[in-house]
Amino acid sequence: YKNGVNMDLNKLGYLLVISEEKSFSKAAKKLFISQPSLSQYVSNLETELGIKIFDRNKYPITLTSSGEVFIKNIKEMLNLKGKMLREINNYSIKNLNSLKIGISPFRSPYILPLILPEIKKFYPNIKLIIIEKTAKELEKLLEKEEIDIALMSLPLTKKNLNFIKFYTEETFLITPKNDYYSTLSIKNEISLKNLKTESFILPSKGIKIREKINSLFYNNHFFPQIYLEIETQETILSLIKIGLGIGFTSNMSLIHKDWKNDFYIFSLKEENIIRDFAIVYKKNRLLNEVENTLVEILLKIFKSEEFS
């Protein structure tokens, strides 16, 4: 094309969204791009092809006769691309010897025992390599393609990564089973202002949940008395259980080993710490069959009644 119009199939897919939404603004919002950029792309394409794809004089916008033919062929091309990629993917899986999974050591005790037996059941001959690093380190490893996927919390700091979310959870304040703490709360809710004299046992700096906790303190002008900073969630839970302090944990952690019975569990009056967890991989990389199966396993497990 003489003017260099982008005929990339992914961008041609924008036209399908416009035709479905019947609106440039709605399509742009759905595609996470600006409306002017989307309109300019379509205008350039129409000029290059010498046709009008959309009738903008109607509301909602409609396809022209030429546009209907063009959209029909785009759908066929995208279907063909999908078929080709599936065939390549199926061929590749036969030669797949290993899968490198990155995960935070703060989360690995809770997630890995749930998913690894399922993967082994479906793919007994694939060697699984587990890399335990902090979230920032995992993002760097994904960029360098030193791991295939990572199981980690959002948001991401790198723009060249994709993700599929599989779980959303609240982080709770937990205390030892001491009736004193129940006097500080109302309807299982507790305020930071009632915890000024308490000793906190927190995740070490550099662990992603610590950043969320620090933001909570900062936003509410709260200055905690930090007694200990610990690398692993299990150690934090063990020390809080015996009365050395109070801290934070998640539903995912509490379900493990039935920790729920060992603590008083509170939501915070000031604000809730809500976190999303996702399977993360490098952009422009197609997930293979094993990785797609892993996504299905994660979605099934974390949508179960136990985690709801």
Rank of each mutant, 00 (worst) to 15 (best):
I174L: 13
G102T: 07
I190F: 12
M152Q: 14
K120Y: 12
N162P: 00
K208Q: 08
N89T: 08
K165W: 02
P113R: 09
S108N: 07
K208M: 09
L112H: 10
L192G: 06
I101K: 06
L154T: 07
L78S: 01
K83F: 08
E118F: 04
T183C: 00
G82S: 13
K133E: 15
K83E: 15
L85H: 02
I126P: 01
P176M: 10
E137I: 00
L202R: 01
L114H: 05
K94C: 03
F166N: 08
I111P: 03
S108Q: 11
L80A: 14
I88R: 14
I71E: 12
L128P: 02
L142G: 07
R107D: 15
E170Y: 12
F172I: 05
I71V: 14
R86Y: 06
Y167M: 06
S108I: 07
N160L: 03
P176N: 12
E143L: 13
A150I: 03
L141T: 02
T197F: 08
A135F: 07
K127F: 05
N178V: 06
K94W: 01
K158E: 15
I209T: 10
R107E: 10
K121G: 02
K100W: 01
K136P: 01
D148A: 12
K159C: 02
K120F: 04
I190M: 09
F172Q: 09
G82Y: 02
T183H: 04
N160S: 11
N162D: 13
I209S: 10
T183A: 03
T168D: 10
Y91R: 12
T197W: 04
L112T: 05
